[in-house]
Design a protein around this nucleic acid. Structure first.
Lengths: 197, 197, 197, 197
DNA sequence: GATGAATGAGGTTTCATTCAT
DNA sequence: TATGAATGAAACCTCATTCAT
């Protein structure tokens, strides 16, 4: 192994994601990214023929996807409110893990819609559908009242995501675990009461 | 109005907001902005000594603020669900009117936190507080159950804002009036049932 | 008037033609060209949006064209051999005047065929036709024997141009006026004897 | 022959001559040349320490030289016009065979005079002298009139070379065999009539 | 108040070449 | 012999900004 355990390509990708999230696609220069990875600027271009291509690979290499899907079965073993907690917790932890990617997506979705939007659409769609499936089964079991399950999912995640956005990106106030717990508890109560039979 | 009714400064500001929202702060060059306003590049610098200053003036000139506050009194004349509809409608129409500014804020909040974040914080805070006041009174009237009113407000607006974001910016699917109506109806039902006594 | 009599644009064009002819299109950097014109590199790009565009303007600004055409009438007043001398002299002096352009054309015709070839084609074609007209009339007057007049023109100019090429570009031996005179005399004799009745 | 019969070095040389003739010395990158030869870029540098050295070897490996010299004796067995045809044909076929080298020489003679010019000088000189010898003997036999034999050679080849240049490089019009035959016939007629006693 | 002309600094990308294997 | 990985230097070009009018 070389003295650096990660491969050059990986180091560049990491430096890129870090700088893109801090300064945006245009603000992060290839020179900086290369320096951040400890390589010469040319080396970056040997690995990613273009800054655009580097950007695409950043998007592709940090998949959001399969967060919730495989947790679906175990949700049915939980009480409704517990299941909602579990959904939110898994969603939030995914957001925190990929906070930098979230920044990139939010910032670049207007300037690179073809790339960014398409990339997020898949994730979002899958997420909504997964939750919708859970709600539908809960309706069929007679536990939940009748409502559009996909919109229900969007409502639940919307509350959470908006809270996350505002706390982290707008107020930027390193919110405590407790703040989050309190908010989630309130959201779950409202949503549960609002959807149970 | 004829195109030349607006002052040069206004034309530059309009061109700036348009281009900033399309290409981001860095992506929109002063040359383009000037061309968009039909003036020479230098003229832009006569009016705004710096690109940064232009950006600040863009932020300052398009205030989000007083959307909901002065509607507060009339909310109490409405039935609860109707009041929720009214809140959402006024919030949404404000978003649509300032869609371009919303883009700018979302895209630049990471690269210009001092300017953008502070600017939004005031608006958001005011908004949450206004709604909280409404909920608190409704609780005191014994109509609503006990819950953290500010978090309640954040839940309600979160659902709506998230829906708006996803429809307009991620799926970009010129959603119909009906789509929105349907979603709002579902959100209101969930939220109302979840917060009524 | 500014201290420099020639305009900035002209100075850049002159510097460009000089360096293109010395180092070729790729070998002459925009930095050098700008320095040669005494301006900053950016200034070059304000005047010629692109290096390619600069190259095109170099081609367009140094027209070869109307060398022989307007001399046509007076050729008929001369004796045949004298007319041939006149044709060659005017052709050669045009070549010497535009020696640098000739270099550029010869060097770049393979790498920029669309631009360079088309540019020369017009000139060459016009030239051949002009001479052909002279020969045709001389045939009709019964002075010259029957031959393909256009090919005749190409033969005459071919001898001269080849001589010029080899002397100036291959042997590079600052050939004396006398060398040229001697060669031309020989060429004229051969061609005249070869085409007279 | 199978593609791999040629040695690596030969493959690189062939790729080089092809790309130099298409894009010029500067325009053809070592990367492309290596790719064209099916080897890694470094391998090219193993064989030719420098791009310059590669260029020199390209020049040295494709000698123009002994085209006409050994045909000299048989020229005397032919009638004059036939001999002229033969000279031209052998010259032209040599040009066509080495069309790519001709391009390289024409394009690079200004930027690499030391290398290219010297290389061509030898060939040209030899060529002129060979023809001069033929003419001289023909004069001594009393068949040709008195004229500078070397200039005569230059006249003859000049017509042909110029025709070749214009057809192939300027008009680029895949000229038919007949076009060439017709032109040559005309040239020979003019030249023969112009030099016979 | 408005501008045409000019610019230093810095952007991304390509070049020929070297190193280590 | 052949190569994958890395590089300093330099290419073209764009940026926000200033100067003189």
């Amino acid at each position: 192994m070389t003295p650096e355990t990660r491969s050059t390509k990986e180091r560049i990708l990491e430096s890129a994601i870090k700088l893109f999230s801090q300064k945006g696609y245009l603000g992060a220069s290839t020179r900086e990214i290369a320096r951040g990875a400890g390589v010469a600027e040319v080396t970056l271009f040997r690995h990613f023929s273009t800054k655009e291509k580097l950007f695409e690979e950043v998007l592709n290499n940090y998949s959001f996807l399969p967060v919730l899907k495989h947790k679906l079965p175990e949700l049915f073993n939980l009480e409704y409110e517990e299941a909602l907690f579990e959904i939110i917790r898994s969603f939030l932890s995914s957001l925190f893990l990929r906070k930098e990617m979230t920044k990139i997506i939010k910032a670049e979705i207007f300037t690179h819609p073809e790339k960014v939007a398409k990339y997020v659409q898949v994730f979002i769609d899958e997420l909504y559908n997964t939750i919708a499936i859970y709600f539908k089964e809960m309706q069929e079991k007679g536990i939940l009242r009748n409502f559009d399950t996909r919109l229900g999912g969007r409502a639940l995640l919307g509350m959470v995501f908006s809270y996350f956005e505002v706390e982290e990106f707008i107020f930027q106030k390193q919110s405590s675990q407790e703040d989050y717990e309190k908010a989630i508890k309130e959201f779950v109560k409202i949503f549960a009461k609002g959807t149970l039979k």
